[in-house]
């Protein structure tokens, strides 16, 4: 009896439950010794016969796992799809919510956009890691306890709906867009024509700087008209990658100058601020109205652009199953 064989047997049996070790040990020893005998009979010297036999048997832990039917996968084919679905579902829900919440809270408490983006990214990573770890752990336990698959079997009720690319599905989207744009344009005109705030002589004081009527306000009103045409185009043609790109251009054309004007303090009418005694730059409880507006506009703009690309992606994916179905 030499030490290599003993070490091999120990390496194998220590990985199985205590109760099964005593039964396993003589079986593996018999197998090894018989194999060595065959090699010795063929003329090998004892040392190389032992070494060749153990090499041929391979990883002792794998051998022991074979003996006691221990699974050698973290999550096997039985649960893999359920694991992947659950992981995706939880990650897609919890990561954006957590990141957005941290972003907003950080922005309001520190007022730093960069810091808020950093915190949101760190939160997104840590939530992703947690979701990945705990979900996987659940399935690793399921895989090993061999629980029944109650509630996990696939049924036809779980088939996804074919994507609704029809015009009817887009009508409500069109109506919502047009109503929103009309209200928005109406508010811009209304604050000039019938201002809510009056000066002492009874004349109205518009909210927006009247100087903008010869510069940026026509640009924004023009963009609103363009958005209305764009919404109609989407209603007629549906979302596509080029539509998402146009949506991006429109979004940038609106958001960038609006935020620049807002940041420079050129958007609001100085007379309006004087009359109301309101200063959006003054901080209350650590954050300012100015930051809130900037953050909200940014979030809405990014969401709108992302939504466009999501819908374009969904629409391009929707085209293929219909084509596939039509071919058959």
């Amino acid at each position: 009896m030499t030490s290599l064989t003993d070490r091999y047997i120990w390496a194998a049996v220590r990985t199985v439950p205590e109760a099964q070790r005593s039964g396993l040990e003589p079986e593996i020893r018999e197998m090894i010794e018989e194999s060595i005998d065959v090699r010795l009979a063929a003329g090998d010297d004892p040392a190389s016969a032992e070494r060749a036999t153990l090499t041929g048997l391979g990883d002792p832990e794998r051998l022991a796992a074979d003996y006691v039917d221990r699974p050698l996968v973290l999550v096997g084919p039985r649960y893999y799809l359920e694991w992947l679905r659950l992981l995706k579902t939880i990650a897609f829900i919890s990561v954006p919510i957590a990141a957005a919440a941290v972003f907003v809270v950080q922005l309001f408490t520190t007022g730093s956009v960069g810091g808020a983006i950093g915190s949101a990214a760190a939160t997104a990573i840590s939530v992703t890691v947690h979701v990945g770890f705990w979900t996987t752990l659940l399935f690793v336990i399921l895989e090993r306890t061999g629980s029944t698959e109650a509630g996990m079997e696939w049924t036809v009720d779980r088939l996804p709906e074919l994507p609704d690319g029809s015009r009817d599905g887009r009508r409500s989207e069109l109506v919502a867009s047009l109503v929103f744009l009309a209200v928005f344009a109406g508010l811009i005109l209304w604050q000039q024509v019938r201002p809510a705030v009056r000066a002492e002589d009874g004349s109205g004081i518009p909210l927006l700087d009247p100087a903008l009527w010869t510069s940026w306000l026509p640009w924004f009103l023009g963009l609103i008209v363009a958005e209305a045409f764009f919404a109609t185009w989407i209603f007629r043609r549906g979302w596509s990658w080029s539509a998402a790109a146009v949506n991006l251009v429109l979004g940038v054309a609106f958001t960038v100058p609006a935020l620049q004007l807002w940041a420079a303090g050129d958007l609001l009418n100085p007379a309006f601020l004087d009359a109301t005694g309101w200063d959006p730059g003054v901080a209350t409880e650590g954050w300012t109205v100015s930051t809130i507006v900037t953050a909200s506009v940014l979030v809405l703009a990014v969401w709108d652009v992302a939504d466009g690309f999501l819908k374009a992606g969904r629409a391009s994916g929707a085209a293929s199953p219909r084509r596939v179905l039509a071919d058959h």
């Binding site: 018999e30 197998m31 018989e34 194999s35 065959v38 041929g56 048997l57 391979g58 051998l63 074979d66």
Partner: peptide, 20 residues
């Protein structure tokens, strides 16, 4: 016993490894 079985299977043309 295992190894005799393995050799007789081998002799009948059925190859199988000891660790299987």
């Amino acid at each position: 016993y295992g190894y005799a079985l393995l050799e007789s299977l081998e002799a009948s043309g059925i190859h199988v490894d000891a660790n299987t």
